[in-house]
Simulated scan of single mutants.
Amino acid sequence: MRIMAAAASASPSAATGMFSELNNGIAHFYDTSSGVWENIWGEHMHHGYYDPGLPRRAAFTVDHVKAQVRMIEESLKWAGIPDEAESRPKKIIDVGCGIGGSSRHLARKYGAEVVGITLSPHQAQRATSITSAAGLSSKVRFQVADALNQPFPDNHFDFIWSMESGEHMPDKEKFMAELVRVTKPGGRILIVTWCHRELVEGENSLTPSEEKLLKKVCDAYYLPAWCPSSKYVNLAHRMGLEDVRSDDWTENITLFWPAVILSAFTLRGVVGLVKSGWTTIKGALAMSYMVKGYNSGLIKFALITARKPIQGS
């Protein structure tokens, strides 16, 4: 949890070194764990969307793959992404694409050209292979790239999709600036990410016990310091974006982590964890921390969307 604080006080070269080390850790984590996840859960590496109020026992019976697809659809609906042929997005970037589940879904839904970026060479290769087998190579491509230094020109995409990648970004301001830079005027940005709760009046920080819990999550999943969703909202306003909105969908994802825990400790899950090595096992052991964080109100599942203004408007 001290990565950002240390980086802020370090020299530019030292901060770059810290971020590079973090990126290497993220790449290694997903290189080793993505195969286990795909084998058990399939192509979508993100939370599912569930009706609020379902009992915890529903984790045994709900179709979680359908819930993951529903998460994509509900997020698009919430952000107001048009589905009409004349106004739907034509060029999309999937920032933190995993093995390309969202990229392929978006390409099919909108008939769009989609580029997915990830720090993991394994993910990029696997995403390309699955996409080729699905007959979508003419529409969807993947590459290894850093979301904080994207290899794309300004004003290039009319929809920016970031599903659960923002939590990995060590510099939220630079992350937002890059998203804004590559967005076409009139284009929309959608960030779905893990955040911590908002501080209340009189608080200057989270409690020591909350900081301790988040540090355990950070150590397992290669995350830098967390932030509240209001940080993204404030950055969006500062960068001149329009129609800035946010929401908290924590109550819609409560079944997800119990289901992931159940799947990890099936015979197939245990065999996969053992084969993948300590990095993935450590991530599995940390899943209970995510459940505790959500249940206590510390961890929030946040959505932030905004539109880049049309020049001269």
Score class of each variant (00 low, 15 high):
A7Q: 08
A7W: 04
A8W: 11
A8T: 11
A8P: 05
A10E: 09
P12M: 05
S13G: 00
G17C: 00
F19R: 11
S20P: 00
S20C: 02
S20R: 11
N24C: 06
G25S: 03
A27D: 08
H28Q: 11
Y30R: 00
S34V: 00
V36T: 05
W37A: 00
N39V: 00
H46K: 04
H47C: 12
H47F: 15
Y50A: 12
G53S: 10
P55Y: 08
R56Q: 09
A58R: 03
A59N: 05
A59K: 10
F60D: 13
V65S: 12
K66N: 11
K66G: 04
A67K: 05
A67M: 03
Q68F: 03
I72P: 10
I72L: 15
S75C: 05
K77A: 15
P82V: 02
A85D: 13
S87K: 14
K90E: 06
K91C: 10
V95I: 15
G101I: 02
S102W: 04
R108E: 12
K109H: 05
Y110R: 07
E113A: 13
G116V: 05
L119M: 11
P121V: 01
A124V: 07
T128H: 06
A134N: 04
S137Q: 15
A145F: 05
F152R: 08
D158Q: 09
F159S: 02
S162G: 13
P170Y: 01
K172W: 03
M176Y: 01
A177C: 06
E178S: 09
L179A: 11
R181A: 02
T183A: 05
K184F: 04
V192K: 14
V192F: 12
L199G: 07
L199P: 10
L199V: 08
E201H: 10
E201D: 12
G202N: 06
S205F: 07
L206M: 06
K215Q: 14
K215N: 13
K216S: 07
V217M: 06
V217R: 01
V217T: 01
D219C: 05
Y221W: 15
Y222T: 09
L223G: 02
P224H: 08
P224G: 06
W226A: 14
C227Y: 10
K231A: 07
Y232H: 13
Y232F: 15
L241M: 14
L241A: 07
E242I: 04
V244Y: 00
R245S: 06
N252T: 10
F256C: 07
P258L: 01
A264L: 12
T266K: 04
G269V: 00
V271E: 15
G272K: 01
G272C: 01
L273G: 01
W278C: 02
T279I: 13
I281N: 03
S296M: 10
F301K: 11
A302C: 13
R307T: 14
I310L: 08
G312H: 07
S313C: 05
